[in-house]
Each structure stands twice: as structure tokens, then as C-alpha cells.
Design a protein around this nucleic acid. Structure first.
Lengths: 123, 123, 123, 123
DNA sequence: GTGGTCTAGACCACT
DNA sequence: GTGGTCTAGACCACG
């Protein structure tokens, strides 16, 4: 389980875990019925609190990506990965659109917005 | 002073006030030396704590948008358009960066992100 | 009565009035039994609140520099101007000493402190 | 954390906290990455409101002396000695300026102020 | 446990 | 009247 946690980001740790596990499922690296690492082992591996891992797993289960079997562990559920990808793209699209509209409201030209975007992407 | 407070949002009230007052200054609806509503009157009008309004005003002053005169009130500072533009660009930059990072966390390639961005910008 | 009020300073207006009237008394421009301007006329002249002038006059009276005659006005009391000057110098001395000691505590050299001082004085 | 609060002073409590923590950092008693006491524990220790401590910590962070990690605590930032030196010089400058202005308000000539200053510095 | 926000009301200094 | 500070306690998000 190669997850990367960045505590300097303003994104909560548990959300970073959720995002990356979703990506693993979508990419097929985690398949239906595969076992996720136990809460304790993952928390040790990432050097974070077990409660934080638990919160991520709880969220994944609530969204239907995993199923937890009491006393056994957490497993990948059957998932519609295409649907997931579409949803994520729509979310990204909405974020980008909001940013662009805000820039235009501020009177910043499309050219400037684009160069700013490229600057960050090339980063 | 027509400010709109949305307590259901996860955005702190004082930040909503800051954003909207900045916008009023930017749009020229609040001009240099114009008086802002007093802390107490605005708190009554918005039905929020005076401390919350105060926090917003303190931030605006710290960022140079207003000047506060003890015992008199809070006034719009000399319109520093450069400051404003810098502010706006930084905000846009932060928004774009957050969107790009989210896309990457979702496992969407930079190429896909870029084409999505261009689609919206040209859109 | 040529008083100069600077609202941009962080020194309260009433204190500026007190300081300047004390100076006038010390310099002999205001002599014993001379009448001070009425609260109302001075407040009009300086374009400040009458309450602020009143506060300054109250302080002057409390310190023994003036006497107020009900229904007539405020008059300069007999004052030991030499003593006053000494006190003011001691106050200034204490302020300067505190500043210098603070600078030294910060590890700033005497030479640097002096040039800073001259910079401000020549200002 | 041995901070001393003097409520009889006219200096706000949160400013006293700021000054003393800055001094601890400056003197090396608080080093990079050291944890500051939690808002709550310090407020209990000093018997003051948690909000007051929070305000002090917010200021320290805004000035770059500390970094706050949500849910974890407040830590001393990378010692920016340049920042510190600038800070200190500005403070000294402000003190000297206030003293000089006071002397002038008292009607003491610049020459007299200078000789007083030199007397103390050489003293 | 931590920090982040908010409340309702108090007292003070300044105008 | 204004802003400046402080309190005592609440609820939330994060770990």
C-alpha cells in the first residue's frame, strides 16, 4: 500500500487517504474483494493516528467503495469505476470553471489566467 | 451595507464578510474614506456577534484595505489597486493550484487536466 | 491659541492638548490668571468634540495647572514651571533609556542605535 | 512556560504573551519545531481566556514566528533571524520616535534631546 | 487531545 | 456614540 501523505497541504489527511484508495480502485490496482491493510498496520506505516485511518475507511464504506467485515477486515466492494471517474472529472471541471470565472470577475484576462495555470501545472 | 451571511456554508462568517467587503471596494461601491458600518451596528444587522465583525475588520485592516480610528470608526483606505490586483492573482493562483492538486490526487493526468481547462476557457 | 492636532499620531487628542498647553505655560506664553479659551470655542477651532477638550481641561486642573471657575471659565494657576520642565526631562530621559536598553538587549550596537536615532531626529 | 501576566498594566494581555514568546524565541529558549503550550493549557496556567491566548498565537503565526497545525498544535517556525532583526529594529525605531515626539511636544529642543540621548548612551 | 469559530455580554479608552 | 480587550462557555473539524 503505497500511499503518500503530505501534512503541509491544507487537505486533511483522511481525505488524502480516501482519494488515493479511490484512485487505486479505479486503476484496478485494488480489485473487488481485495483486502485493505488493517487500520493499525496502515496507521503504523503512515505514522499517523489509527483514528485518522479509521475515519478514511468509514468514509469509503459509507460511499460504497468498501465493505467491512467485523473481526476480519475491510474489503474492496464491487464498484462502478467508470461512474467514479466521471464524477471526479465533473468535480474537477466545476472547480476549474469556478476559478476561471473568479479570475474573469477580477478583470484578469484569459491569457493571464492561462499562463498562471500553465505556471502551476509545469510547477 | 448589503452583506449576505450563509451559516450553512463551511466558510467562516468573518471570511464571508471580508470577501464581500473586499468585493465592494474592488467594484468601487465602497470608495476611499467611506465609513464602514460600526462593528456593533453591523453585528446587529447581520444578527451575529460583534466579535465576529471585529475579526473581519481586523483582517481587512491588517491587509491594508481599511484604516481604523479609535473612537471614530473604520474607513476604506486609499485604494491600493496594485495590492488589490496582487491579492486577486494570489487568490486565483491558490484556486487553480487546489484544483490541479485535486485532479492529480484523483489520478487524472496533467494532459487531461489541461485539455479540460482549455475546454472551459475557450468554452 | 495655536494648538496643532495630529489625528494620525497614536497619541490621544486630549493628551496632545494637555502637552501643548503645559508647554505654553512653561514658556510663559500663558501666565498666571490668563484665561484659557472656552471649551466650546476651542473645540470649534480645532474641529474636535467639546468632550475631548473638556477631558484635557479636567486633566490640567487635576494636575494643578489650571483652576476652573464655575460659570466663568478656566484660568492658569500659579505653577512651578522649572519643576515641570525637570519632570518632563526626566520622563524623556526614562523613555530614551528604556529604548536604548531594549536595543542593547536585542544585540544592536550603540553605533546602530545612534544612527537610527539621528535618522529619526533629522527625519 | 514561565510567562508573567500583569493585568494592572495597560498593555493588553495578548500583547504581553506575544512579546514574551518572541523573547523566548530570540533568546533561543524556544527552538525551531519546539511545541508551544496548547491554547487551552496555557489559558489555564495563566488563568485567562483561551481566546486571549489564541489571539496571541494568531499574531505570532501572522508574523511568521510560529506555524500552527490543525489538530496538533503550534510550533516554533524556522528561525528567521533576518525577520527577527528587522522586527527588533522596527520596535526600537518606534520607541525612539515616540520618545522624540514626546520631547518635542514638551517643547524640548532637538539639540537638548540629542544631548540627553548621548548622555545616556555614553553613560 | 488539538486548533477554529462563534456567542452574549462585560469593561475600558477615546470622541 | 465609537473601537479595543477580555471572559466563559459552546460546537465543530482534525488527529
Amino acid at each position: 500500500m503505497n500511499l503518500i501523505i503530505n501534512t503541509t497541504l491544507m487537505v486533511p489527511i483522511y481525505e488524502q487517504i480516501i482519494d488515493q484508495i479511490k484512485k487505486l480502485i479505479r486503476d484496478g490496482e485494488l480489485k473487488e474483494n481485495d483486502a485493505l491493510p488493517s487500520v493499525r498496520s496502515l496507521s503504523k506505516e503512515l505514522k499517523i493516528s489509527a483514528l485518522t485511518v479509521k475515519k478514511a475507511y468509514d468514509n469509503l464504506e459509507a460511499e460504497g467503495f468498501t465493505v467491512t467485515v467485523h473481526g476480519k477486515g475491510t474489503y474492496v466492494a464491487a464498484a462502478n469505476t467508470e461512474l467514479l471517474l466521471e464524477e471526479q472529472k465533473k468535480e474537477l471541471e466545476a472547480d476549474l470553471e469556478m476559478a476561471i470565472q473568479k479570475g474573469r470577475r477580477y478583470g484578469i484576462s484569459d491569457e493571464e489566467i492561462r499562463s498562471l495555470f500553465e505556471l502551476i501545472l509545469e510547477g
